[in-house]
Computed example of a mutant assay.
Amino acid sequence: MKEGYIIREQDKAHFITATVVDWIDVFTRQNHRDCVIESLKYCIKNKGMILYAYVIMSNHMHLVIQSDDGKLSDLIRDFKKFTAKTILDTIQTEPESRREWMLERFKKATESHTRNKNYQFWRYGNHPKEIYSSKFLWSKIEYIHMNPVRAGLVKNVEDYIYSSASNYINDEGLIEVTLAEIPKVNVLKNSSFMKYIKE
């Protein structure tokens, strides 16, 4: 299947979405969420990933990322390949009440594609959107951080552990992200971006 969205400017920051096949709620399990966290940390330290924002939901994740060596497509591919393999291994070796059902779904997903022979974990495509302005960047950061609030998981964005909201609001988080520059206050009057500005 040909990807509907492609990354033309490999050195630019992009908003991407990675979704588990069939929207399977894999990330309701902490060990699978932690796998993604550790992989992001590794990519930041060793593969030139610049991570501005992220959120891990039950069956998908959103990121605003950039590659410091201009190879964003390769970076995303490697990240998804590694996390898929690691999580699939975990599903098969650690206690998981839904193991058979999940593996059956991941196996079935390979029938319509030839790339994966055994299991397909992530859906193809990332729907990348190039970050072309500060306003667009902040609209995506806000969208990412509001996901758990909209899902009814937390009341305040900074209370959701598996996102970068607390990095921006409390200067702490599971991953050390690259904080995007806060737009000028006069641009943000009556904007929800104001919550990111320290009193």
Results as ranks from 00 to 15, higher is better:
K117R: 11
L153T: 04
H14T: 04
L51F: 09
H62D: 13
S58W: 06
R99C: 07
V187Y: 15
K135A: 15
N46V: 01
E181W: 05
V20T: 14
T178C: 04
A53R: 04
P128F: 02
E100C: 05
I91W: 08
K71Y: 06
V185R: 06
G152S: 02
E111F: 03
K135C: 12
I175H: 03
I6Y: 14
W101F: 08
A84L: 00
H127S: 14
E172K: 10
D69I: 09
I65A: 11
K117Q: 15
D22R: 09
T17N: 06
V64Q: 01
S67G: 07
D159V: 05
D25L: 12
F27L: 10
V26S: 07
Y143G: 08
S164L: 07
T86L: 11
Y196F: 15
S133D: 13
F193N: 08
D89H: 11
M57S: 09
S191F: 11
K135T: 10
A18I: 00
N186F: 10
N31D: 14
K107Q: 09
T90M: 15
E3G: 08
N126Y: 15
K195A: 04
L137M: 14
D159Q: 10
I65S: 06
I175K: 00
D74L: 14
I161H: 05
S58D: 11
D68M: 09
W101H: 14
S58F: 13
R123S: 13
Y143S: 08
L174R: 02
S73I: 03
Y162S: 01
G70H: 09
D89L: 03
P128R: 02
K198Q: 14
G173C: 07
L72E: 06
I131H: 00
I44D: 02
N186V: 05
A18Q: 13
K107N: 12
N147Y: 14
D68G: 08
Q120K: 05
K184S: 11
E181I: 03
I24A: 01
D171K: 11
V26T: 14
G48V: 02
M49V: 02
N118F: 01
D171I: 04
D22P: 03
A53E: 10
K117E: 15
Y160A: 06
R99L: 12
D74R: 08
I44Y: 01
A53M: 13
W23V: 03
V157A: 12
H14C: 13
M1A: 10
L40Y: 00
R123T: 12
Y132C: 14
I16V: 15
V185A: 10
F79P: 00
D34H: 07
D68F: 06
F106Q: 00
W101C: 05
A84I: 00
M194D: 06
R29D: 05
Q10F: 00
Q92H: 07
K41G: 04
D25K: 03
D78P: 01
T93F: 02
F79G: 00
G4R: 07
Y5N: 09
N147A: 12
D89V: 10
E38S: 12
G48A: 02
K45D: 13
L137I: 01
K140H: 13
E96S: 12
I91F: 11
E176A: 10
Y168W: 11
S166V: 07
E100P: 02
N190F: 12
A18Y: 01
M102E: 13
Y143M: 07
N46R: 01
I141H: 06
R29L: 08
N170C: 06
